[in-house]
Design a protein around this nucleic acid. Structure first.
Lengths: 338, 338
DNA sequence: CTGTTAGCGCCTTCAA
DNA sequence: TTGAAGGCGCTAACAG
């Protein structure tokens, strides 16, 4: 692997001349530059980014840290990050947080391989984040309650979202609305529950015991809950599942039992994943402003990077999306809202 | 930002002792190590990975280069890569190839920021790949025809897949099966088409003019095709869309026109995206062994990295998944195969 | 066991 | 306009 030194030798110039020539610095004469470029080409020279990063103390790269690189849920969010990063001249890489102590996560966070990090991985400890963040490594956390001097936070208003769906379910005439929660430690689910309670109280509706399910917010988890629910002596009027995946599972369980949605029981989810629009009945849910979330997160990061004072935390609004699954007595073919 | 030098000074030892102590080398006395660790902790010392990488000439990281980080399509594939990488002690990062010449793609490929690259981004030039690959940077390309000394390739047998669906469509009694192609330059679509032609010929069925659509393999593209198709004087017996997204769009167009699938016309896609199972009618399609693809790609990479001779190219088999959309005269509620 | 020393490949004053 | 020299933070001989 040839280095700048080799190029310098081949072109019969000094090392620094090569450096300048390669970066098109006007300080080098045209003829010299050509000679250098030629030599570089002949030797198949490739700059070593690592060496440059070490010297310049920056990487022009930010990282978005996901729990699982394989999760399809965050497309729009990542796009938001990427768009902002690109327009600021930064590159974006993504990494998963699986692997614990010596996983990529910690490596990226603590070893200064990137200039900034956006964390969307519930399994990364707050402590690790606070420890790693610093003037030279701002960190933006998504969906978590944490701020610190160099840690910024972007969250969606889950309580508002929970309130919106529940209120909608009540407004279309349901009274006994039950809440299906996700993993016990999920802050998101907790906030959604709060919104649910708030709406129920406003309508003086009975806040039932939650159908807690300590699963992973998965379709399978929802399926189990749906099975249990359909075995009860009496069905509720409506079910608010704390995310769409679970709602999908519940729907499947109901379908198997011959319980019709929304005629026998209304159903709503949360997240507005793409399938929500395609499943039948299509799923009423709450849309999170994913793209905006990513874009805002990236903006915070770059503001911090540029040294300007910025907001410590941003909260974004949610959007109710009404579809078939909550529309009692309306034909399935009639979609109200995409 | 403190460096090892600072730690050494604070602990009253030499630089190298710190280096050894931090890496738990048995050569340093327990008491010394403790002193070093303490000093490091007090100073909030963080190792600089870039410096280490520069010195050791390796990053222990591989990169999977996607066209668009925001695309949800590759979950399983990435998981395959990640699993193999993790078990080999490597970290995995992902990056998008958008951004052209000075995008992250080129940066990652040519500046030795990673030890190996898996390319799943049609927009990266073959030339760039060949140029970048080398003994110290093996590259595995997915779904593209390219091999070189340090470039390995993994592909799925698109022709086989195209053959499988078409044959299935013919076997259930269709004769006039039409093929809907994707972007003009898509090699995948081209191979799927070949499989289609092969099956059609075997059954002496008429190979119709293709419904070429030079779109981006999107739902919207399919929708347009579906519109055009349903305006024709006569519908075909069956439609084989070269990917699921397009099939989804076609389905929507048909639905709007009151054309029933599969009763009026059978439909099949390719890819087996998750929605294919949820849409009604559920979509007959071809599954690509995504996880395996990722795992195999990573394995090739690590074999190359370890210096052992490996296969230059691997081709994986596809799987037909029969669902409602191709089952003439069968009730929609009756799902044959997940 | 600990310390000294020499780079990894590049950028960047400072002189010439 | 070009060249020489120093150093980014770390690892790895090689001596002590």
């Amino acid at each position: 692997m040839p280095t700048m030194k080799d190029v310098a030798k081949a072109a019969n110039v000094a090392l620094s001349t090569v450096s300048l020539a390669l970066r098109n610095d006007p300080k080098v004469k045209e003829s010299t530059r050509r000679r250098v470029l030629e030599a570089a080409h002949k030797l198949q020279y490739r700059p070593n980014g690592i060496a440059r990063d070490l010297k310049t103390r920056k990487t022009d790269t930010i990282c978005i840290l996901l729990h699982d690189l394989g999760g399809p849920f965050y497309s729009e969010l990542i796009r938001g990050v990427q768009d902002v990063a690109t327009s600021s001249g930064y590159n974006t890489i993504a990494s998963g947080s699986l692997g614990g102590r010596n996983g990529s996560a910690v490596k990226l966070l603590s070893e200064r391989r990137v200039d900034g990090v956006i964390v969307l991985a519930p399994d990364v400890d707050d402590e690790v984040i606070v420890q790693s963040a610093g003037a030279d490594l701002p960190v933006v956390v998504l969906d978590r309650e944490l701020t610190d001097e160099f840690v910024y936070s972007v969250r969606v208003d889950n309580e508002q979202g929970g309130y919106q769906v529940t209120r909608h379910l009540l407004e279309v005439g349901n009274r006994r609305v039950v809440f299906v929660s996700g993993p016990a430690d999920s802050l998101d689910a907790e906030h959604r529950y709060r919104g649910y309670v708030k709406a129920m109280n406003e309508f003086s509706a009975p806040v039932s015991k939650r159908f807690d399910y300590n699963g992973q917010f998965t379709e399978q988890g929802g399926y189990t809950v749906g099975k249990v629910m359909s075995a009860l002596p009496e069905l509720p009027d409506a079910v608010f599942a704390s995310n769409d995946e679970m709602a999908l599972g519940i729907l499947r369980a109901f379908e198997e039992k011959g319980i019709r949605v929304p005629d026998d029981v209304a159903l709503a989810g949360f997240d507005n994943i793409r399938i929500a629009e395609y499943v039948r009945p299509s799923l009423t849910t709450v849309q999170q402003p994913m793209y905006e979330m990513g874009a805002v997160a990236a903006q915070l990061l770059f503001q911090a990077l540029s040294g300007s004072k910025t907001l410590g935390s941003v909260r974004l609004a949610t959007n109710l999306v009404v579809r078939q699954s909550s529309q009692r007595h309306i034909s399935h073919g009639n979609q109200t809202n995409l």
